[in-house]
Amino acid sequence: MSIAWKRKDLLGVQDVSPEEIELVLDTAVSMKEIASRDIKKVPTLRGKTVINLFYEPSTRTRTSFEIAGKWMSADVINISTSSSSVVKGETLKDTGLTLQAMHPDIVVIRHSAVGAPHFLAGVLTRTSVINAGDGAHEHPTQALLDLLTIRERKGTLTGLKAAIVGDILHSRVARSNIFAMQKMGMQVRVSGPPTMLPRYLDRLGVEVFGRIEPAIADVDIIMMLRIQLERQGAGLFPTLREYSKLFGLNLNRLQAAKPDVLIMHPGPINRGVEIAPEVADGPYSLILNQVENGLAVRMALLYLLAGGQAVNN
C-alpha cells in the first residue's frame, strides 16, 4: 500500500482518487479472512463508537455496517427515523450536533436528500461521516464492494467492460459505479428506457444504449438495477410487465452475452422483473458475493476512518 488514508469522511467516490480506491480494496481483502473465523471478533476498533443514522429504510446496508463494526469490537448504535426525534421536526444539523456531543467516532448516514451527508460532514467537525446513500446521488460503499467483487473474479479492473441496466436516473448505485469504474480504467455502458436515462450521461464518457441487447453483447459484467415498483404509473414506463419484457435479464438474452459474463445486482432484487430467477440463481450470479464483500469493504472503511494503525494487530 503506497498511500495513507487522510480523509475525515467518505462522502462519494467522485472525489476519491484511484489510489485511495486501491487502498480500500486492499484493506478489505485483508478483512475478509475474519468472516471465516470461528470467533468473528478482532479488537481493532475497541472503544470506538459507530452510529448508523438511517433516514431511509434499509436492511442490507445497515446490517452490513452493524456487523462490520461489531466484528471489529466497535460499539454500534442504530438510529432510524421512526424512533428518533426526526419525527418531532428536529433538523439534521441539530440531530448531528446532538449525536456529536455523545462522542461517536463515525456516523454512517443514509438520507433521501442529495448532499445530506455532505451537509452533516460540514456540521460534524470532530466526527467522521460515511455516506450510505444520499438520494439518487452516491452510494460509495456499494460501488467499492462491487469493485472488490469484480477484482476478485477477474484479477484486475483495468480494461474491463461493464453494462449497467435499468433506472439510471434514480440510481445512486449507478452513479457511484460509473465514477468508480471509470476511475479504475473500466469502460461503462448504460441501458434503460430513455425516460430513465438522464440527459448528458454521454458527457461522462459513458456509452448509452436504448435497448439492452446491444448493451450486454460483449461486456464482462452486467449490473442489473432494481426497478422501484412505485415508479410504475409515474410516467416513466407503462407497466412492470412491459419493462420486464423490454429490459429484464433472462436466459434467452444472456445467451448473446460473453460466456464468462458476471451478473451483479445491488439488491434487493425483484425476481421476474429486472432479473429472471434462473439468472439470479445461476452460475454467473455474484449477488451474494457482493453482500459478503460489503462486510469486508465496510470493515475496511470503518478501520481507515477510525484511524486504525496496522490491519493485523
Binding site: 439518487a136 446521488h137 452513479r175 440527459r199 461522462l204
Partner: peptide
C-alpha cells in the same frame, strides 16, 4: 436539469 444535476442525482 443538465450535466450537473445528472452527476449529483438531484431532480
Amino acid at each position: 436539469e443538465g450535466l450537473v444535476s445528472m452527476e449529483l442525482g438531484i431532480r
